[in-house]
């Protein structure tokens, strides 16, 4: 088993969670999301985000609306759907549980 795979697996679920968390504060268009994820080093290459957004949208977790831009191409502003909000609540809980669990496990095994 490769370490890279493990890392990717861990990142996978967390990335979705991060996107939903970003959108919790209000709607955003992909470049905004990318900027935030990049600054927190969640992603390296920008292309990563697009298939994910499309999947989330197709899974009815996200919705979007078009908005004209003065300076560039029209933008898709994404926001959480009601289903997405529910999912995020669930994920928040799971995340906290996981953090607790990992903390406990790693502390125990390191002491």
């Amino acid at each position: 088993m490769k370490i890279e795979n493990t890392k990717a697996q861990m990142r996978k679920g967390v990335l979705e969670f991060c996107i939903l968390s970003i959108l919790k504060k209000g709607e955003a268009y992909p470049s905004d999301i990318i900027a935030q994820l990049k600054s927190s080093k969640m992603i390296v290459v920008e292309g990563t985000i697009y298939p994910l957004l499309t999947r989330l949208k197709n899974g009815e977790v996200l919705e979007y609306r078009w908005e004209e831009s003065k300076s560039g191409p029209p933008r898709k502003y994404y926001s959480l759907s009601s289903k997405g909000k529910e999912l995020l609540v669930g994920l928040d809980e799971t995340w906290n549980e996981l953090v607790q669990a990992v903390k406990l496990t790693t502390q125990k095994s390191s002491s």
């Binding site: 996978k12 990335l15 290459v45 292309g47 990563t48 298939p51």
Partner: peptide
Amino acid sequence: VEIMGNPENYEEVEEP
């Protein structure tokens, strides 16, 4: 291309 990355590198977020 460097910024956007190659599709092989997106793999990590494929559906599990």
